[in-house]
Design a protein around this nucleic acid. Structure first.
Length: 797
RNA sequence: GCCUGAGUGGCGAAAUUGGUAGACGCACAGGACUUAAAAUCCUGCGGGAGUCAUAUCCCGUGCCGGUUCAAGUCCGGCCUUAGGCACCA
């Protein structure tokens, strides 16, 4: 009988010893690059969700190999960052040891699944041999003016004691620890990602990402088309420039609002009479987190800048200037023109502070701002127009002509704050010298290694723990030799994952980050799978990083990834996200031990639509285990004949499984195999050819049991080294089909007929049917619709 | 508020893109084998009417309406739900 534990171990050992899945660089075969996001080796171990995506891509990889491709299917570890550091602090060990420990566990778990990873290419982002090149690439950014240090109001997590990117602080909450993020002014290294906003947007056209993935990228980049308009501040030489998407409402501007941090306040502080009040408000705004500032249904607050007014450039009338926290310094120009009649926020503000509301588009503004289309009024040059687009164009032309405004495109995407005040990250390879300024660490001195120290806990003053390690910090300036200090900030853990897919192509190269040959041979990632939670940030960072490398001539493709899909989550049996606190965690180890990796894999492929979430069901798993047991037992039915017992069904199944696996419809591929098995079980005996097809088609999903059957029943060489079955389209056609007879669209009979029946015969059979006649009798036949291979519908009145 | 999906038996889900709704699996029920149980095998399984049993009929894919010979699928309007974005000017 079949012992899945022994069998699974046996074949895993076989694949390892024979290096079955090692992909040679530069092979003559056509390449295929299948990639699944590398895991963060946390202390919690592997999740059944990992199994879903690894198996899905493994299935893809195994099928592609059998279809003659040289498949790169690598695996590695994304191990820098706060979780590993915190885990290490808790256990009083060095993060590198914690990582080593976790990787060991993770790797054993993954290997027990029988995934066909090319382990010869394994690396961790924390390996100095790897982060050497992460640092080297950072220096390319620096050397090309793409990295700069700036004093910034940054998102600061008081619990993690580190700065966060906007992406990490989405919603005003720290992504890691969920505590409230506060604003803190700090010097930070920043990458000019906003320069790439347009390229990151248009580049999507060169990819085949799933629509929802593309949309996530588009939303994050947040392109908006509008105009900048200059407002002169009365009795001064200053202008206040605003960004607006509705220049057509310029005649309705009754006030302006600037962000509390707007520099004009300081510039004109001598003219502002109520600076005390203004400063008080500024303080008040600062104590609030970004989240509080953007919270819904919030009362508008603000202070008028007393003593200064601006001039509406089209009416020449004076408009008040206010400061309010509903205007953000980080978007547009940090200043807006307020049109309370046609903007909800401005309306609310005007109502609260009793500011005049002038409608410029005909509509009801008694309750709230009117934001629809309508006839322009009170608008001089626009009066009489009724549509937004021509009005905007006319106004833009006017502003350009007068030199007081211009078209402007804005993006929500901001520069990437690249500094973290943490120990466990790639040190930023720069040295500060009082004489020479920032000096890059010379290439030959890379990597800048993290020191082996006992104390690396975050500090309260917001400095990196590295700053306290004097012997590490103090160095000679590489340029002039004078005393200098290392940069002590480290990189965010998005850094290592921004280019790991390139390193897999040539993971042991000590001379270059990847060789040109390897880059040219492997090209783009053909199929990339990951979690939905990474489709916005990680994907954007990776594309940005790659586009930069492309622009400086280091990689051959501007877009690094062809297809990107996102798997759905595996939820707990109760339909909720698995978590320790909810007690609904399914441990893949337990499942592998009790049912085997093949059963787990088959079940997770059968569970439902790959891109949708699915709740775990142990009964469902048992059903799949039963299916595999039946596959094993079907061997008892082998006879000495050749050919297919049910030729049509075999060809249909090959076609169905081949197509389904290529489009990630794993659930229906499994069901097609179940149908084939159900059919084979009805015969007294089956042929080796029958069984051979069955195990080949099932092999990518359940690789161990199928290899074992293949060997035990002497069907041929190991499946992993064998060829995918092919089908003959003409043989997928059934000899007979069930002809459906309808009257007025309702089914009134079914007859089994030959597939090459003519339309006339179909119609004749329908009209002859007794049951059909019951419904047509005494009625006028208006028309008869005949759909070949399907049905006849008789329409009567 | 905006942008995406999704809503089909007791449950997970299928449905060649307009052509037999519920494939496949789970659960459940009945039966066979067994001293018994497990395992395995067979049968049934959307709801209702009808029949000894067949046959046959009616209803049914979130709700309302429309297009069509024909709608789970297309169109219009709603409801619910999940995810993303959000004082973005």
């Amino acid at each position: 009988m079949y012992n899945f534990k022994e069998v699974e171990k046996k074949w895993q050992k076989y694949w390892e010893e024979n290096k079955t899945f090692n992909a040679p660089n530069g092979d003559k075969k056509e390449k295929y690059y299948a990639l699944v996001e590398f895991p963060y080796p946390s202390g919690a171990g592997l999740h059944v969700g990992h199994v879903r995506s690894y198996t899905a891509l493994d299935t893809m990889a195994r099928m592609k190999r059998m279809r003659g491709f040289n498949v790169l299917f690598p695996m590695g570890w994304d191990a820098f960052g706060a979780p590993a550091e915190q885990y290490a602090i808790k256990k009083h060990i060095h993060p590198k040891d914690a990582v080593k420990e976790n990787i060991k566990t993770f790797k054993a778990q993954i290997q027990s699944l029988g995934s066909s990873f090319d382990w010869s290419r394994e690396f961790s982002t924390t390996d100095p041999e790897y982060y050497k090149w992460t640092q080297w690439q950072f220096l390319q950014f620096y050397k090309h003016g793409m990295a700069y240090k700036a004093k910034k109001n940054i998102n600061w997590c008081p619990t993690c004691k580190t700065g966060l990117s906007n992406e990490d602080a989405a919603g005003g909450v720290c992504e890691r620890c969920k505590s409230k993020v506060v604003q803190k002014e700090k010097e930070q290294w920043v990458l000019r990602m906003s320069d790439y906003a347009e390229d990151l947007l248009t580049g999507l056209d060169d990819t085949k990402f799933a629509d929802r993935v593309k949309l996530g990228q588009i939303n994050w980049i947040g392109k908006s088309k509008g105009a900048e308009v200059d407002f002169v501040v009365a009795d001064s030489d200053k202008t206040l420039t605003v960004y607006t998407t509705r220049p057509d409402t310029l005649y309705g501007v009754t006030f302006m609002v600037v962000a509390p941090e707007h520099p004009i306040i300081d510039t004109l502080k001598d003219k502002i009479k109520n600076m005390d009040e203004v400063n008080k408000y500024k303080e008040y705004a600062k104590t609030k987190t970004e989240f509080e500032r953007t919270e819904l249904a919030k009362e508008k607050t603000g202070v008028r800048l007393d003593g200064i007014v601006a001039i509406n450039p089209v009416t020449g009338k004076e408009v008040e200037i206010w400061i309010s926290d509903y205007v953000m310094m980080s978007y547009g120009t940090g200043a807006i023109m307020a049109v309370p009649a046609h903007d909800d926020r401005d309306y609310e503000f005007a109502k609260k502070f009793g500011i005049k509301i002038i409608p410029v588009i005909d509509g009801d503004i008694s309750e709230k701002a009117y934001i629809g289309d309508g006839k322009y009024i009170n608008s001089d040059i626009l009066n009489g127009l009724t549509d937004k687009e021509p009005a905007i164009h006319k106004m833009l032309d006017y502003l350009k002509e007068k030199g007081i405004g211009r078209e402007k495109v804005n993006y929500r995407l901001q520069d990437w704050i690249f500094s973290r005040q943490r120990f466990w990250g790639e040190p930023i390879p720069l040295i500060h010298c009082d004489k020479c300024g920032w000096v890059p660490v010379p290439d030959e001195d890379l990597p800048v290694r993290l020191p082996d120290v006992a104390n690396y806990e975050p500090t309260d003053d917001g400095e990196s723990p590295l700053a306290n390690i004097e012997e590490w910090v103090n160095v000679a300036c590489p340029k002039c030799g004078a005393k200098a200090r290392r940069e002590t900030d480290t990189m965010p853990n998005w850094a290592g994952s921004s280019w790991y897919f390139l390193r897999y192509m040539d993971p042991h190269n000590t001379e270059e980050f990847v060789s040109k040959d390897a880059l040219n041979y492997w090209g783009k990632v053909d199929w990339y799978d990951g979690g939905m939670e990474h489709t916005a940030r990680h994907l954007l960072y990776a594309r940005f990083w790659n586009q930069f490398l492309y622009n400086i001539g280091l990689v051959p493709n501007k877009e690094p990834i062809d297809i990107r899909v996102s798997h759905g989550m595996i939820l707990g049996p109760n339909g909720e996200k698995m978590s320790k606190s909810k007690g609904n965690v399914i441990n893949p180890d337990d499942i592998v031990n009790e049912y085997g990796a093949d059963a787990l894999r088959t079940y997770e492929m059968f569970i439902g639509d790959y891109e949708k979430d699915a709740a775990w069901s142990t009964n469902g798993l048992k059903g799949c285990k039963k299916f595999l047991d039946r596959i094993w037992r079907i061997q008892d039915k082998l006879n000495d004949k050749s050919g297919y017992t049910n030729e049509t069904l075999v060809h249909q199944t090959i076609k169905k499984v081949t197509n389904d696996l290529q489009t990630m419809k794993y659930n229906t591929a499994v069901s097609a195999l179940m149908i084939l098995l159900n059919d084979l079980e009805t015969y007294d005996s089956i042929t080796k050819d029958d069984l051979r097809v069955l195990v080949h088609l099932l092999n990518p999903i359940a690789p161990h049991i199928t290899e074992e059957i293949n060997e035990v029943s002497a069907l041929g060489k190991p499946l992993a080294e064998s060829t995918w079955p092919s089908y003959d389209e003409s043989k997928t056609v059934e000899a007979n089909f069930e002809l459906v007879l309808q009257v007025n669209g309702k089914v009134r009979g079914k007859i089994d007929v030959s597939s090459d029946i003519s339309k006339e015969e179909m119609e004749k059979l329908a009209l002859e049917s007794e049951n059909v006649q019951k419904y047509t009798e005494g009625k006028e036949i208006v028309k008869v619709i005949v759909v070949p291979k399907k049905l006849v519908n008789i329409v009567v009145k």
